[in-house]
């Protein structure tokens, strides 16, 4: 047990939670904005992979240590936007089932990235042979000097700070701006939105595109922050976890953040448990099992509420 506390109780562990939670959080925010507009983005995983590869490739092509990584990030975001638009086109215009369209994007993402990486590097496993750049970490003055707090909150990758800033930005966007109101209106009652002259399909397009951009940022972090290369299927299901985080967070930015941190905690825990004799697989399964329980509890509560209101 003492080994457990040693692993969990140190500050490096707390810092690791934030790091591990970052890609999940970004993708969960992507799922959130889609869901707020009444759309399902099942393709987060594939979008993240494409973005991760794009980021590494573009940064590597620039051969520039000072802004190469930033160019990579921008390119990754652009690819995310494109894929979001593609998904929107499949779902809204070609009337493809959103689940199957997402599954297709994931299959394509998982395999096309390997194919392209091979064409680029000649290796089907990782892109480590090519020099690429990572996004910088940020050392925050004042905070970095505070013991404990400094270790946790300073020195994180810039994308981690962006992710948490985006929680606030997204909440602000959804709840305080006219466009945010329209997105929520479209998601909650498309008929009502339509009756006041809102372009429902246009708003959904926008939500898919923004969703793609957010997921792409999470993907870019994977290959240009979390590690410094692209690897086959490196997102390892984070896109699906993000969907669960969004569902558990009831499609709100803050809720998605909390559940992402929860996932980050359990993943960091299973990482640091690897050296111990505790069966980390069971710890690894915990967040998923908890999600199932949380979703069931929520569904149960909704059913009861409905029953009560319709009971004569």
């Amino acid at each position: 047990m003492s080994a457990f506390f040693e692993a969990v109780g140190n500050v490096a562990f707390a810092a690791q939670i934030l790091r591990v939670a970052t890609p999940i959080l970004l993708a969960a925010l992507g799922a959130t904005i889609a869901s707020q507009a009444g759309c399902l983005n099942m393709g987060l995983e594939g979008i993240m992979l494409f973005a991760a590869l794009t980021g590494v490739y573009v940064s590597s092509m620039t051969q520039n240590a000072s802004w190469g990584a930033w160019a990579g990030l921008l390119a990754a975001l652009a690819v995310g936007a494109l894929l979001g638009a593609l998904l929107a086109y499949l779902v809204l215009h070609l009337k493809t089932d959103a689940t199957l369209a997402g599954v297709a994007i994931n299959v394509i993402g998982s395999n096309a990235t390997v194919f392209l990486m091979y064409v680029w590097t000649g290796s089907p496993g990782t892109s480590a042979s090519q020099k690429s750049y990572v996004l910088p970490t940020v050392s925050i003055p004042v905070i970095r000097d505070i013991p404990v707090v400094g270790t946790v909150f300073s020195g994180q990758n810039v994308v981690t700070y962006m992710a948490f800033a985006l929680v606030a930005a997204l909440a602000f966007f959804l709840y305080r701006t006219p466009l945010g109101l329209r997105i929520r209106g479209v998601g909650l009652n498309p008929g009502a939105a339509d009756s006041v002259g809102i372009n429902v399909v246009g708003v959904k397009y926008l939500a898919y595109v923004l969703s793609g951009v957010l997921a792409a940022m999470g993907g870019a972090f994977m290959s240009m922050g979390y590690v410094s290369w692209f690897a086959r299927d490196m997102t390892a299901g984070r896109g699906f976890i993000a969907l669960a985080a969004q569902a558990m967070g009831r499609s709100t930015p803050v809720g998605s953040m909390l559940s992402s941190i929860f996932f980050g905690f359990t993943m960091a825990l299973s990482n640091s448990m690897q050296s111990l004799s505790i069966p980390f697989e069971l710890i690894e399964a915990m967040p998923y099992a908890c999600t199932i329980l949380a979703l069931s509890a929520y569904a149960y509560q909704q059913t009861r509420k409905k029953k009560q209101s319709s009971g004569g």
Binding site: A247, A299, Q302
Partner: peptide, 15 residues
Amino acid sequence: WNASELVISLMLNYV
């Protein structure tokens, strides 16, 4: 309870 079989099944895969 009309819980989404999609998300739950995705989570079950990992479990």
